[in-house]
């Protein structure tokens, strides 16, 4: 059976390959597209570490900075991103998010002496190491698009979907946070799904 060509669900492959060829404009477009996705990744990672009190947007910014520092021909040889395809790239930035958030949590809780040690250990952060990944990670690429489309929903509907799926809260918990009845949250959930489907069409 012939191999099917890799999909390019959100123009990620084209932008990534152009960025790898040092097209700065494509790189900026790619980072812009990724920003909502990074925000979800950071939120997801923070949700696993309750009560950190860390700012989501500053962590997204720091992640973007790290990605930019270690991508492309200007990056140091030993720490450069060496993949070529979106799945490896998404996996790579997932690792960076995990590391950035983990370091931020440690910094927030560790005594000053330990913080200094972490700073000294930054050199051990191996950005170049890559796990083996599926060559056609459609779900990962779809997630980038879902994250972007969520930004276009009304804030109330977006927050219900984020709480429900990306923070795994129950309808009762969401209702409590938003000060509404669970029945009303279920209706908002329905309408948010309908909006998302209208924007994205049939999800794979």
């Amino acid at each position: 059976m012939a191999n099917s060509p890799p999909t390019d669900l959100y123009d990620l492959r084209r932008l990534l390959q152009a960025a790898l060829a040092d097209d700065r404009s494509a790189w900026n477009d790619l980072l812009t597209k990724l920003r909502p996705y990074l925000a979800l990744l950071v939120r997801r990672r923070l949700a696993s570490n309750a009560s950190t009190g860390l700012g989501e947007s500053s962590l997204v910014q720091e992640t973007l900075l790290k990605i930019d520092q270690h991508f492309g021909s200007k990056a140091p040889e030993g720490t450069r991103f060496r993949g070529k395809e979106p799945p490896a790239f998404l996996n790579w930035i997932g690792q960076i998010v995990a590391r950035v958030v983990a370091n931020a949590i440690r910094d927030a809780h560790a005594p000053p002496r330990d913080r200094r040690r972490e700073d000294e250990n930054q050199g051990d952060f191996d950005f170049a190491a890559l796990p083996e990944v599926d060559s056609n990670d459609e779900v990962g690429e779809m997630s980038v698009r879902v994250a972007a489309e969520l930004e276009h929903l009304s804030e109330g509907r977006r927050i219900v979907l984020q709480h429900r799926y990306f923070e795994q809260l129950s309808f009762e918990e969401i209702a409590k946070i938003l000060g509404k009845q669970p029945g009303a949250i279920r209706v908002t959930h329905l309408r948010a799904l309908a909006d998302l489907r209208e924007r994205m069409g049939d999800l794979p």
Binding site: Y37, L41, V42, P131, V146, A147, Y165, L190, L193, A194
Partner: peptide, 27 residues
């Protein structure tokens, strides 16, 4: 049924995000 498919797509995305943000260097 169509909206239920969207629910499952969102679950898959959330699961993929979680793996990417936590699964490091091989699983």
């Amino acid at each position: 049924l169509k909206l239920a498919q969207s629910v499952h797509a969102l679950h898959r995305c959330a699961s993929s995000l979680f793996e990417k943000a936590t699964v490091t260097f091989g699983g």
